[in-house]
Amino acid sequence: MLEIKNLHASVLDIDDSEILKGIDLKVGKGEVHAIMGPNGSGKSTLANVLMGRFDYVVTEGDVLIDGNSILKLRPDQRAHLGMFLAFQYPAEIPGVRPWQFLKAALDSKADANGEDKMSVRNFSKLFDEKIEAVGINPNLVKRSLNEGFSGGEKKRNEMLQLEVLQPSLAILDETDSGLDVDALRIVAEGVNSMRSPERSFVVVTHYQRLLNYITPDVVHILVKGKIVKTGGPELALEVEKDGYKQYMAEAEVNA
């Protein structure tokens, strides 16, 4: 499904700003991969580069979805391929109602893939169901998108969009941080209920906490722009216990 090959990326227009320093990663269909790592190690950058954010340049390597390079695709085209990024810091958009925006997103995906648009009626039904599923206050989604939302509400709103858009590859960038235990459980239940042989997840997190609810197939440790260790769920427990110190040393040696 997703294959990252020797990916190097820098910040656009800033010399010597390489953040990703050769990442190799393969996420198979239906797999859940967790990426853990200390602050500033490049986790969000990786997530954003995968989605095609404008302020990074890929200087080397490739990213493939089902065997095809996506590096030349615009973010919306990547979304049409089934990619989705839940943001660590979702944008606040005054005056735009989540309902309208999600309908527009779904319509353009249908357009791009030559499918029929969902009727307003069916969409409303789906939307209401998902609102209930992610436990978001229905009054919130009548308001402006993310404007004045609390941190937790923003994350739930990201989950709402994830549930409505039903992507085949979902990248969650610290969707768990800033959540209370109930919200954390909702995020985890959302991911678990959407887990299927057809859908893959890349879950970026700082904490083992989320991984108590979502059992990953594979855990990667990202330090200073490189994956320094890959293992099973037990790797997350190791990090929880000993921190990232040992891996930092490894990164120094490799550098």
Binding site: R74, A79, E92, F101, A105, A112
Partner: peptide
């Protein structure tokens, strides 16, 4: 631009995303 990227990442093209933002500004 950050807001534009957010909308684009959900599958809305740049033109439509701008229209949504302008409409939101006027709302």
């Amino acid at each position: 631009r950050d807001t534009l990227f957010y909308l684009q990442s959900r599958g809305v093209d740049e033109e439509a995303a701008k229209a949504i933002l302008i409409r939101g500004f006027a709302a």
